[in-house]
Nucleic acid binder design. Structure first.
Lengths: 201, 201
DNA sequence: CGACGTTGTTAACGATCGTTAACCGGAAGG
DNA sequence: CCTTCCGGTTAACGATCGTTAACAACGTCG
């Protein structure tokens, strides 16, 4: 209750004032990219989704690839920053539960972002693709480090594979959208992911 | 040893003789669609991948969408047919293990097919999309039925959500490709998925 | 009031897309 | 030997793509 996953950033110490149009475009683009894929969405579609014509988009982004790049960088940074905070809990069991709670809440709140994040990495321009990959790897390593504390002596590559598999489980919900309500789905995912990870160690 | 997941069909009782060019194109298309997405692959790319020019493709398929549609129908039918065979085991515990073995083997043998199968359903023309969806649902129901036999009295929507989550876990491997060899990865996925499903029931 | 930066528009560009047309070499069959 | 079909080619089509240019409405500030 002291913090919640999708909270408002309130104000960053440095950086330009957050342009609401940019955020609006990014949100609409996430939805469209998730549904039809990056190449299945045109600049015209993107503009229309926020009530503008296509070329208006160039007032806010340098191009279509820049929209995707900023989107993926933002997601990766948020996952890593919040993940690192949760993983810092001195009790590795609590850290793992906190990681699970955070990741599940993020996935349930932002299904489109999760989908694009794991599908369109190769589409992003090389320059920023490396940064995104580095952030993704670092996020995985937060999980691996917690699991290593829970069970030292396990080979790291096996632990890494288990973490990737757990992410697959957690990130699949955007596309299933079963008849369960949010609380039930959250609890189910938590239970299943924890059981899967424990069985692998 | 009486059967293996990726076995040759040998000969179907009815239907045209299997054109090797069609199969070659479908295999190349699966790889490309998985890597760059349906809209990120052009007819020229498709032809080039099998040593032809773009328009040559129209000697074997009525168009680009037909390639995708046939690909998804074929996958869905194979999954359902083989899944139903495994699920028929009178012992539900054995049936679940057989389903897990089959699905894991298929995913490890055909990572591109698994990827396209779960990503591009909305891209397929409506006519055949409904058939694919029906087959996919039937495959899920095979799993749900086995789990119901293992634990009667559980609400079906929860079981269905658990199955979807388990598929997310199993299908994530194509995109992780960790440092484990095939046998180790197969065993790890089996263990994790079974633990996840058991924890949900 | 006038200059200006901001944010939108429509029009137009070159490139690329999926698809069709027209043609061509070679194998098979009478 | 001639015909026919099969599976390829190159050329060309209209549509659509991402992007840029040129222009307009509007608030702000000197």
């Amino acid at each position: 209750m002291t913090s919640h996953p999708a909270g408002e950033p309130a104000a960053e110490p440095a950086g330009p004032p957050p342009n609401p149009r940019r955020a609006e475009i990014l949100a609409a683009a996430a939805e469209l990219f998730a549904r039809r894929g990056y190449h299945g969405v045109s600049i015209g579609d993107l503009g229309r989704a926020v009530g503008l014509t296509g070329p208006a988009l160039y007032r806010h982004f340098s191009g279509k690839e820049a929209v995707l790049a900023e989107m993926l960088l933002d997601i990766s940074e948020r996952l890593l920053a919040e993940g690192a905070r949760r993983a810092a809990d001195p009790d590795p069991g609590h850290a793992l539960d906190a990681l699970l709670r955070w990741h599940i809440a993020f996935a349930l709140d932002n299904p489109a972002l999760i989908t694009v994040h794991e599908r369109e990495l190769d589409t992003v321009p090389a320059a920023q693709r490396h940064r995104v990959r580095r952030l993704q790897r670092a996020y995985v390593e937060e999980w691996v480090a917690v699991l290593r504390r829970l069970n030292p002596g396990l080979p790291d590559d096996r632990t890494r594979a288990a973490v990737h598999a757990a992410f697959g489980l957690l990130n699949s919900t955007p596309r299933s959208a079963a008849g369960l309500d949010r609380a039930a789905m959250s609890a189910l995912l938590h239970t299943m992911a924890r059981a899967a990870l424990q069985s692998a160690t």
